[in-house]
Design a protein around this nucleic acid. Sequence first.
DNA 1: TCATGTAGGACAGGTCACGACCTAATTGAG
DNA 2: CTCAATTAGGTCGTGACCTGTCCTACATGA
Lengths: 324, 324
Amino acid sequence: MTTDTPARLLQLLSLLQTPREWPGSELAERLQVSGRTIRRDVDRLRDLGYPVQATMGAEGGYRLVAGKALPPLVLDDEEAVAIAVGLRAGAGHAVEGIEEASVRALAKLEQVLPSRLRHRVKSLQSATSSLVYDRGGDGAVIAPETLTVLASATSGHERLRFSYEAGDGARTRRLTEPYRLVSAGRRWYLIAYDIDRDDWRTFRVDRVSDPFATGARFAPREVPTGDAAEFMRATVWRGAPTFEVDVTFRAPAAEVARRLPPSFGAPEATGADSCRLRATVQDSLEWVAMRLALLGPDFTVHGPSELAEHVARLGSRLTRAAAG
Amino acid sequence: MTTDTPARLLQLLSLLQTPREWPGSELAERLQVSGRTIRRDVDRLRDLGYPVQATMGAEGGYRLVAGKALPPLVLDDEEAVAIAVGLRAGAGHAVEGIEEASVRALAKLEQVLPSRLRHRVKSLQSATSSLVYDRGGDGAVIAPETLTVLASATSGHERLRFSYEAGDGARTRRLTEPYRLVSAGRRWYLIAYDIDRDDWRTFRVDRVSDPFATGARFAPREVPTGDAAEFMRATVWRGAPTFEVDVTFRAPAAEVARRLPPSFGAPEATGADSCRLRATVQDSLEWVAMRLALLGPDFTVHGPSELAEHVARLGSRLTRAAAG
DNA sequence: TCATGTAGGACAGGTCACGACCTAATTGAG
DNA sequence: CTCAATTAGGTCGTGACCTGTCCTACATGA
């Protein structure tokens, strides 16, 4: 094997990431160096901020523990595939507050993922799509590939070409300088400078198709209002419909709270075995209805009436299904 | 900064993982070394099997691309949290075929996750639990912590102590030598040698609570039938109920197939806009009912009758909810 | 008390890493 | 076409650093 120092350190890091204890002698044998060198290497890792814990005495050994800095993760093939699949599944709906980071991590991983693993990810990925994907509840499905391509182009300052379907169904080709990829509410948006239109635009990512980075780099311009979030608010959120959901559950407040997405807020107890939830949501009501149905306990919809309609429709669909 | 070679290589690796092009001069300035040294470092990385692609000419630069080996992933805080949250969410239900790898990756990551990040993961994790968690559909919820503790103890050959709730509700404390953690069907099982009982046992992980590794190492014994999967089949699967699901959908076969978990198999088209699914499942029927409800299109349950009952019950629950 | 592990100092010898300098090849823009 | 910016790689001298071999000290469990 390669016998020089940096390579050995990386290898050592990978060994220590296995959740077990490694006696120095075993490490020495594995890496074909003396025990003294292992001790020195361990010191070096500690200097780098990766705390290697050593338990002394017989049955002792080294292991990597949590420290201040996160060491580079050394993954085997299967683990890498598992992470990629997990992130792709989560990319569409992820947990609020980490959507962007999730996509960044995925882009980072896929950039270096060997192609043999990429195939496995692709074939496994189809499995998860159904339950989780339909993020807006209105068929606005986003392919994970799209998100990662946009994320890479954005952070790499590469021009981006894609075709876009406007609200009226018209498809156009766009050449843009992507500025930011943001997840707002239940949707993804790309803020970019449209070169042909010579102006800033926000694009709904679920309407983007066939995106690819042209490879041409560009120097970032100033975004008009100075900040992406501000710009979003000014251009997209105007008039996004919100609803005042009001529901009573026949279950303890604690249990409902545990099973409810936190964006809904917390229900207030109205008895030992019932609670009431009032929440302002800007999600699609169909999605809210499903969410409530999945919750488990019985519940009653007080409002809005559109939500009651959705619930009723879902209910009758199921009743019809069972009647067959 | 640390100025020695291994540290610099790791730093370089982390820079190159950003999806963008890095001119050598910029890298040189960042790492406080000469351009020549950068070129040598790039060579070193290539020697290690991490292909650094260089585009020549003006506007050129280095970037890390997919190669044969997966380089150690250098993540920032947010990305690490995103991955941890994603894996925890996925740990319960993951995609068939990668459950174990998923848990291994999670254990590896959590082993080295700084505590400040661990807190963020914990607070975010609650968000995802509802929709995805209830894996068996029968309230058999598994905490991700439990899975990672078991995984670590298993691969580290550490003795494991936990309390276990038997089928009849009796709680006992167990001291075991964990042998394997397997995901079968829709459940997790731990195959371990029970020291007090002095025999091999399989434990349902959803019935395990408060597990912790004692730290004591043990030498793995021979598992009786020689193979974990075999042992599983012999002890657990006997008499697991299966159902013959038979459902007609009012939607094209292709669309239904796309949104259905692959374990259900593929529906066969019975018309341009309808298809029929016959599948043998060993899941809980309540779970199947939810799955069907979430699918979107209208459907009709032909059998089994228990499934129709579940669907009907869900339907009437929703109808009642809407009537409020 | 002993075996087995980590911790770390001192030293000698050899290696290798670095910077400085050089030339070649490639690409895009003007 | 020409020029500028970039990667690619050779050579050389100096000095730092890395390694293995000693050694002692200390912690731990049987």
